[in-house]
């Protein structure tokens, strides 16, 4: 293995930025809290789902015939499993513009078996660098020591429609699990019971899980809608008999504007959080402590903390 992979946080903002920095445009990763038709409808088009949980589950038979017709990689690098789950979706959807690096990767690995594909992911400098960039290089951070971090032992499964079948990609299996025929229109309703079954299994225990959708970034769609509604308003304004329709159109335009603002706010929040993830906080911590020291606040804070710590231990 040419380089090591750090653990990264499983967060939609991290994944969205990770995908962008790997060279793929127009993708937004969203967290799914609700599997209802209404909610899933708002996320469409969905390219794939990533289901993560802190347990290893082995059941269903695999479809060994499908292996040659899709990108399926076995998990060879533990810390890379989040990125690997993402690649399992990106590299199996023809609609997605992968960018130069991933196109090249897909091409180079297309005839490799699942094990070699997994190794190829581990060896890819570009992917590894982007993945590792989500962890700061602080002078005191240590992967081994922070084994209590919630994301270290998560297992990842991708669900993606490939060649008319709903495929489950689990890097710890020998091949994909085929959940049957599906179309672009109905695959989400077909995957819903599959996921619900898994969630039901974990609901009664200590297992934690999370579900994310790899979707088409809606901004381009919103901008198109804005153009169309503005055009419609322009036309309606010319006709004095169409007041009600004009008002309705204006309300629609406001709805779209609201969606655009919410989208902007979401991307902004992702951006702020990612900047904080990548930031080396050590200099700020030291400067803060110096400030407290200069202003006589440090010693009282020490004493207060010693008291608190004692109380916590007694509790």
């Amino acid at each position: 293995m040419s380089g090591s992979w750090t653990t990264i946080e499983s967060d939609p903002g991290v994944f969205t930025q990770l995908i962008k920095e790997m060279g793929v445009e127009g993708i937004l990763v969203e967290e799914i809290y609700d599997l209802s038709e209404e909610f899933l409808e708002t996320l469409k088009p969905v390219y794939g789902l990533i289901f993560l949980f802190n347990w290893v589950h082995n059941d269903a038979a695999v479809d060994m015939n499908a292996i040659n017709k899709m990108f399926f990689a076995k998990q060879k690098v533990n810390n890379a499993c989040a990125t690997q789950a993402i690649l399992g979706i990106l590299l199996n959807r023809k609609e997605i513009k992968l960018g130069a690096e991933l196109e090249s990767f897909k091409e180079i690995t297309k005839d490799l078996d699942p094990t070699m594909k997994g190794i190829a992911i581990g060896e890819n400098d570009h992917i590894r660098k982007v993945h590792n960039s989500f962890k700061t290089q602080e002078p005191f951070e240590s992967d081994e020591r922070m084994a209590t971090s919630k994301d270290d032992v998560f297992h990842f499964i991708s669900y993606v429609p490939v060649n008319g079948s709903l495929m489950e990609i689990d890097g710890l299996k020998e091949g994909p699990v085929n959940h049957g025929e599906c179309t672009e229109e109905n695959w989400l309703s077909k995957v819903k019971p599959v996921i619900e079954k898994r969630i039901a299994q974990y609901q009664t225990s200590e297992i934690r899980f999370n579900l994310m959708a790899v979707t088409k970034d809606p901004l381009e769609g919103y901008q198109k809608e804005m153009k169309e509604i503005s055009q419609k308003i322009h036309e309606l304004e010319k006709d004095e008999s169409k007041i009600a329709e004009l008002e309705a159109a204006k309300m629609d335009k406001q709805d779209i504007l609201d969606k655009i603002h919410m989208h902007e706010a979401k991307l902004n929040r992702y951006s702020v959080e990612n900047a904080r993830r990548r930031h080396n906080w050590f200099p700020l911590i030291i400067e803060l402590l110096k400030v407290l020291a200069k202003n006589g606040k440090l010693e009282p804070a020490i004493k207060e903390s010693q008291e608190k710590t004692k109380k916590r231990k007694e509790a």
């Binding site: 911590i285 803060l288 402590l289 400030v291 407290l292 202003n295 606040k297 440090l298 804070a301 020490i302 207060e304 903390s305 010693q306 608190k308 710590t309 004692k310």
Partner: peptide
């Protein structure tokens, strides 16, 4: 046995007034 926690020291309550 009598240590402090950095998280108790670098709180908004303590830092904000400064």
């Amino acid at each position: 046995t009598n240590d402090a926690n950095l998280q108790d020291v670098l709180t908004p309550e303590i830092v904000s007034p400064l």
